[in-house]
């Protein structure tokens, strides 16, 4: 019952909060930018040629897949920002407000506080991202770029949702470890920047070293998942485009890494730490 009460309050208060407007703007901005950018590429294909110059075969003609590929690149930052801003507040924010000991004194499990907040955020955040994605897809049709195959659309939507879930999970862990939400946000942002740098490094490092580092690269795993779901038709720019021959084994490994290690494990770790932590008021 406590879990339900927390979820209802969190959903209501998030939607009615001023910062929800900021989240909406942050999430809508890449959609608008990408529609504009896709239209530019549609009008002037030389932009596309320059953009894909690093590909083995640079693209000369605009298509919906390449538009979504560029969308993934520009949307990950706002997704990370919204996930970090909101999730950093989960526990550190309650502590800063002086609410944490009050909540803990109630007959509820500590994990219910984390899961209630996490679930309510996902209930708002994931449909919002899905809606944004659908708006963008619809815009491509209206511009005249057309629509990608369903498996490619599902692949890109999965990628967006995975990015959101992973970033949120990591921010929750930092929130449990920090005394203030600002500290949690900063910690998560530094971690994510280092992680993104690692992603870029793997492109330029020798293959053997890159293969080792790719095991902990979010973009690498996401690219494999996307490649497999789309039947080898889609990829993300940061990893140099569509992965070659994404097989079922690689897919299962990368999917497990994203879901189990990068999404569920930070949450379980957060709960484990929070359940054992001494909590003092402020």
């Amino acid at each position: 019952m406590a879990l339900e009460v927390i979820i209802k309050r969190e959903i209501r208060d998030t939607i009615l909060s001023k910062r929800f407007i900021i989240y909406l703007v942050l999430l809508l901005l890449p959609v608008v930018l990408n529609i504009w950018f896709s239209w530019m590429m549609y009008e002037d294909p030389s932009i596309l040629q320059q953009m894909t110059a690093m590909f083995p075969e640079p693209l000369t003609e605009i298509n919906p897949t390449i538009c979504m590929m560029s969308f993934i690149d520009i949307t990950t930052f706002p997704i990370a920002l919204v996930a970090v801003l909101h999730s950093s507040d989960f526990i550190a924010g309650e502590k800063e407000r002086g609410m944490l000991t009050l909540l803990i004194s109630k007959p509820l499990h500590r994990w219910e506080i984390i899961m209630g907040k996490l679930f309510s955020f996902m209930v708002i955040f994931l449909p919002l991202l899905t809606l944004n994605f659908l708006v963008m897809v619809l815009s491509f049709i209206l511009i005249g770029i057309g629509i990608a195959d369903l498996n490619i659309l599902i692949g890109y939507l999965t990628v967006i949702l995975f990015y959101a879930i992973v970033y949120t999970s990591i921010a929750v862990l930092f929130s449990v470890l920090s005394k203030r939400p600002s500290m949690a946000s900063l910690g998560t942002i530094i971690f994510l920047i280092l992680w993104m740098i690692l992603d870029f490094l793997t492109i330029y490092l020798p293959k053997n070293t890159a293969d080792v580092l790719n095991n902990i690269s979010l973009s690498h795993h996401i690219n494999i998942v996307l490649g497999f779901i789309s039947g080898g038709e889609a990829g993300i720019f940061v990893k140099g485009g569509i992965p070659k021959d994404p097989n079922i084994g690689a897919f299962i490994y990368s999917f497990s890494m994203v879901v189990l290690i990068l999404s569920i494990m930070p949450i379980l770790l957060s709960v484990f730490i929070f359940e054992r932590k001494d909590i003092q008021n402020k």
């Binding site: 019952m1 407000r97 002086g98 007959p107």
Partner: peptide, 29 residues
């Protein structure tokens, strides 16, 4: 079956007093 008032208690400041009490009661079962 416990109630607790911390020293320097916190609130959800954008909530009304009524909703805050209702929320605390619901969390109390």
């Amino acid at each position: 079956k416990i109630g607790y008032l911390p020293e320097d208690s916190g609130f959800y400041k954008s909530m009304s007093g009524f909703r805050f009490l209702q929320y605390m009661a619901e969390l109390g079962g």
